[in-house]
């Protein structure tokens, strides 16, 4: 999702929240299937073929596992198909299991897409525009943790090269770990003094600090945000008319096909496939431009 990732973090965050909320909390088979298909489209663009194979190996068994678990433990429903160990296995429970599997796998796909697009710096940026101080602190923590780890590793190695702490006993190892930790803590205190000087040298503490980010809110961001909010509103309006009410138990209710329901399905389908469309559109556009050169 190279093109979709380029949108402003606020827009992508709103997008993911909308899609994930609908697919998790609207318990409706059509909506679930749309979310799943959209998620598959999205992840298929961002994974390599090797990853696709390993994803299939993971998600297909998971899908069946979830679908089969429900009828084994839940015996609600009006239509028993057969009896197992004296318990009824019902049609409703099987369908509900499949529905839950569709929902869960779909949400997992979207979560994967989220983690791909919403990287830490985007999250920090959004967070930082609410609480600027905290975002600097978080950024410093993210800088410090890997550095401490590296130093600890170096101390460990240096000591091992002298023959300290290479014995196998657990007691010795725990003790050596403690000593390395205390040395690293001492080192980091020393380090912090210098870092704070470097901050001061570059004017930290002067009045009126601003918060810089690489992100710009462009026209396209506004447009996409408008589309997302519009689709969201349409679906919510349809929902209030009861177009998306659906129940598995005690008996599966029919899926509605009145105009309101159809509008909701179409809106959600457009929403779920939006990043995929953007991606394909940009690719086509690029190929078109290149063919003209």
């Amino acid at each position: 999702m190279r093109y979709f990732s380029r949108f402003h973090p606020l827009v992508t965050l709103v997008y993911f929240l909308t899609v994930i909320i609908f697919s998790m909390f609207v318990n409706h088979p059509v909506m679930g299937i749309i979310a799943l298909l959209g998620g598959i489209c999205f992840t298929s663009v961002m994974t390599s073929s090797a990853e696709k194979v390993s994803d299939l190996k993971f998600y297909i068994p998971l899908f069946f596992l979830i679908s089969l678990t429900n009828p084994l433990f839940s015996h609600n429903g009006k239509t028993p198909l057969f009896f197992m160990n004296g318990n009824a296995v019902t049609l409703e429970a099987i369908i509900y299991g499949v529905g839950i599997a569709v929902m869960l796998v779909g949400v997992m796909m979207w979560a994967k897409a989220y983690s791909f697009v919403m990287t830490t710096d985007k999250f920090l940026y959004l967070f930082g525009s609410i609480v600027p101080q905290l975002s600097l602190v978080l950024s410093m923590v993210l800088r410090y943790v890997p550095m401490l780890k590296r130093q600890a590793k170096q101390v460990q190695k240096s000591q091992k090269g002298l023959g300290m702490y290479s014995s196998d006993s657990y007691f010795d190892r725990a003790k050596s770990g403690m000593r390395v930790m205390s040395a690293v803590v001492g080192w980091s205190l020393e380090h912090v003094v210098e870092t704070s000087k470097s901050m001061k040298a570059r004017g930290y503490g002067l009045k009126g600090r601003t918060n810089y980010s690489n992100f710009r809110f462009r026209k396209e961001d506004g447009l996409l945000l408008g589309i997302i909010v519009g689709l969201f509103a349409m679906i919510v309006v349809c929902m209030t008319t009861g177009a998306l009410t659906f129940a598995y138990y005690p008996e599966i209710t029919p899926i509605k096909t009145n105009p309101m329901a159809l509008i909701a399905y179409i809106c959600f389908a457009v929403l779920a496939i939006l990043p995929f469309l953007i991606e394909i559109g940009e690719l086509l556009r690029w190929n078109y431009y290149r063919s003209k050169i």
Partner: peptide, 28 residues
């Protein structure tokens, strides 16, 4: 100063470059 590691404050290169100007309150 001489220690390359100790002078770096933030986790990203772009943020480090902007750090001083942020302190001065420069606009984006």
């Amino acid at each position: 100063s001489q220690n390359p590691d100790a002078q770096i404050v933030t986790d990203k290169v772009w943020h480090e470059l902007a750090f001083g100007l942020e302190s001065l309150g420069t606009d984006t």
